[in-house]
């Protein structure tokens, strides 16, 4: 028991290395926020491309569905390795793209952001789609019958309702995304998992990783509670505020 505690919960070790771990976690947070925001935007774009009406947009819809299927099916770790391993060798790309170092962040930070955005954009597109499809058909009809274009109707009528419906599931995806940023440790970005792992192999003690896990919980637990709250509020709204069944 004593061994177990000293391996995982060595408080002295945690205090000694707190600053390093916190610095790693801060990078994790930055990675999560940048990739999270980009995924939210990219997912919304994909969801809208998927909903474009008419025969003319059939190829666009088809390509979008193919994209979403492929990137939901490929492991994020493989995406990270594919992007970071070979993008720098693609000589036809401009240097700012081959070796991105925007906002003072190293290229492996941005490769991680790309890989996460590409993958989570596909997940989030599906979440948005479920929200768009949950908006009753009559809403689009009413908007179109008032002379709005498909685009105007989407923007002013459908999406505001859809986003409200999917706020909780999107937040859930964000929590998953945040945890998955640890995979970027595979390409030597000193985020919290890599910092913890280096300390683990140096000192043969896992307490720094435990500390990293605790830092995650400090962020993810309140978010998870918030998701629960939002879901129950949405359900309450549905039973209280919605039109009665006979009116539907």
């Amino acid at each position: 028991m004593q061994e177990f505690i000293s391996q995982y919960f060595d408080v002295g070790f945690m205090i000694d290395h707190f600053d390093e771990v916190l610095e790693g976690f801060w990078l994790t947070v930055q990675l999560s926020i940048v990739a999270g925001v980009l995924s939210l935007i990219w997912g919304l774009i994909l969801a809208q491309l998927r909903q474009l009406p008419g025969r003319g947009f059939l190829p666009v819809r088809f390509a979008t569905i193919a994209y979403i299927d492929v990137f939901r099916g490929v492991p994020l770790l493989i995406m990270i390795l594919l992007i970071s391993g070979s993008i720098p060798s693609l000589q036809f790309l401009p240097e700012w793209l081959r070796i991105p170092q925007w906002f003072g962040k190293p290229d492996n930070f941005w490769f991680g952001v790309f890989a996460i955005t590409i993958t989570y954009g596909a997940y989030m597109a599906e979440v948005y789609r479920s929200g768009i499809e949950a908006v009753p058909r009559g809403q689009m009809e009413a908007a179109r019958s008032l002379g709005m274009s498909h685009r105007q109707a989407m923007r002013n009528v459908i999406l505001p309702q859809a986003v409200r419906k999917v706020f909780a599931p999107l937040l859930n995806d964000f929590i998953a995304l945040m945890k998955d940023t640890t995979l970027v440790s595979a390409i030597a970005l000193s985020e919290v998992a890599l910092v913890g792992r280096d300390l683990q192999s140096d000192a043969l003690n896992s307490s720094a990783l435990t500390l990293g896990a605790i830092m995650f919980l400090v962020v993810t637990l309140p978010l998870a509670r918030l998701v629960d709250k939002l879901i129950s509020r949405e359900q309450g709204r549905f039973t209280r505020g919605a039109p009665r069944v006979e009116a539907l």
């Binding site: 009809e141 009413a142 019958s145 002379g147 505001p160 009116a247």
Partner: peptide, 19 residues
């Protein structure tokens, strides 16, 4: 556009924008 501006419609289910 011409049609939708000349012709208004009211539906059985109202279809008001709830937000």
């Amino acid at each position: 556009n011409f049609v939708r501006q000349r012709v208004g419609i009211v539906f059985q289910q109202f279809n008001l924008f709830p937000h």
